[in-house]
Computed example of a mutant assay.
Amino acid sequence: MIEDTDPSAPTVDYDSPWKEAVEHHFQDFLAFYFPEAHTGVDWTRGHRFLDQELAQAVQDAALGRRYVDKLAAVHRHQGIKDWVYIHIEIQGGHDNTFAKRMFTYNDRLFDRYDRPIGSLAVLADDSRTWRPDSYSYEVFGCRHGFAYPLVKLVDYAPRLEALLEDHNPFALVTAAHLLTRQTRGDVTQRYAAKWRLARLLYERDWDRQRIIDLFAVIDWMMRLPAELEAQLWQALTTLERNKHMRYVTSVERIGYARGHQEGLAEGRRVEAIALVRKQLARRLGELPPVLDRRLEDLSVDEVEALSEALLDFSAIGDLEQWLAQP
């Protein structure tokens, strides 16, 4: 989760694997980064994500450079029946407008739902001093202020080894972020760190989906040159064979691995198609097989065009019409 020019730098911001990790493991996310919020939620009564509603509420607000924004409706304890809302921002780089954006989003969401909004921020930038945890203004005796809990991933650096032993999945995600920063410009060390994290995934008593989700985040952060990626896939294949399990290198990763073997350009196309599939599934639900197969024939430019067009889709028919265009 760093900005640099080496092959390992992440190439996707907003639709990163962070999004799925937070959504699939929301309780763990809050427990690790925001324990007070986690304690205040009644998890027995369920929760739901409202990303489309969030997009509608803040669609004309400046986005900045972020990795994730999420909105979840949750119940509190003490017999309170109404939903309250948790808004999460994971910010990938320094942005002087960040605090104002948090203020704006909180205000618009409160106006939309007329319910309390808990705004939480995770900063994944490299600065140790940038900590925008409030926004306020005063005019003509009128004071308006907003403060919110803030987590800086760089603050966890002294606890790296403890993170690697912690069984909360976001401890491992945080460790991956720190190791990505530490190995910037050194692909040999980057490979060793990525392989260590991958082995840890298999040593935990975690279900298949959790392993896939977390490896997706680690893989996205810790990019390697093609030859080292191929070496890593071979090592993972051997590890899975020895442990009699097929997780990371199973069907979800075949397209990616084949892309490296056949050329980086094809690899990018395969990754882009996988990403647009996920975007379509979130917006339209499961795709009919005939439409899903047609995605395989799209070029990189066509996939990019579809990723923009699908923001306006509301039904399967919209996708059919788009694919029917000459």
Results as ranks from 00 to 15, higher is better:
30 L>W: 09
210 R>S: 05
94 H>L: 15
153 L>G: 01
197 L>H: 07
319 L>A: 00
297 D>R: 04
78 Q>M: 10
170 F>R: 01
145 G>D: 15
177 H>N: 13
170 F>A: 02
131 R>M: 04
196 R>C: 08
54 L>I: 02
81 K>F: 00
39 T>G: 11
82 D>K: 10
309 A>V: 06
96 N>V: 11
326 P>D: 07
282 R>D: 14
159 R>S: 12
263 G>E: 11
188 T>D: 15
201 L>R: 04
311 L>G: 10
243 K>G: 01
311 L>I: 03
57 A>M: 04
24 H>V: 00
109 L>I: 08
77 H>R: 14
177 H>G: 02
13 D>P: 00
139 V>Q: 11
258 R>T: 13
222 M>T: 01
291 L>R: 00
250 S>Y: 12
12 V>N: 09
131 R>Y: 06
165 E>N: 08
117 I>M: 11
322 W>D: 01
43 W>E: 07
237 T>I: 05
161 E>P: 05
85 Y>C: 09
108 R>V: 02
183 T>W: 05
234 Q>K: 11
128 R>H: 13
100 K>S: 07
121 A>F: 09
219 D>A: 13
278 K>C: 04
245 M>S: 09
104 T>N: 14
84 V>S: 10
22 V>Y: 06
282 R>H: 12
126 D>S: 12
204 R>G: 01
165 E>T: 03
175 A>H: 00
234 Q>A: 09
318 D>M: 02
299 S>P: 07
127 S>R: 12
251 V>R: 12
5 T>E: 13
69 D>A: 07
174 T>W: 00
191 Y>T: 00
200 L>A: 03
268 R>F: 10
167 H>F: 00
264 L>S: 03
270 V>T: 12
26 F>W: 14
113 Y>I: 03
323 L>N: 00
229 E>L: 01
74 V>K: 03
141 G>N: 11
246 R>F: 05
35 P>A: 08
261 Q>G: 08
179 L>K: 03
238 T>A: 15
151 V>F: 06
130 W>V: 07
188 T>H: 10
42 D>M: 08
189 Q>M: 13
177 H>I: 08
140 F>E: 12
142 C>H: 13
24 H>A: 15
156 Y>H: 05
151 V>I: 15
114 D>V: 05
172 L>E: 05
80 I>R: 12
178 L>P: 03
276 V>Y: 05
188 T>L: 08
270 V>H: 09
80 I>N: 06
97 T>Q: 14
160 L>F: 11
178 L>T: 02
88 I>L: 15
55 A>N: 10
121 A>S: 13
34 F>W: 06
12 V>R: 15
300 V>W: 09
191 Y>I: 01
84 V>I: 15
200 L>Q: 11
84 V>P: 01
300 V>Y: 15
132 P>H: 09
234 Q>H: 13
268 R>T: 10
76 R>W: 02
315 A>H: 14
259 G>E: 09
263 G>H: 09
295 L>G: 01
217 V>M: 08
22 V>H: 07
144 H>S: 12
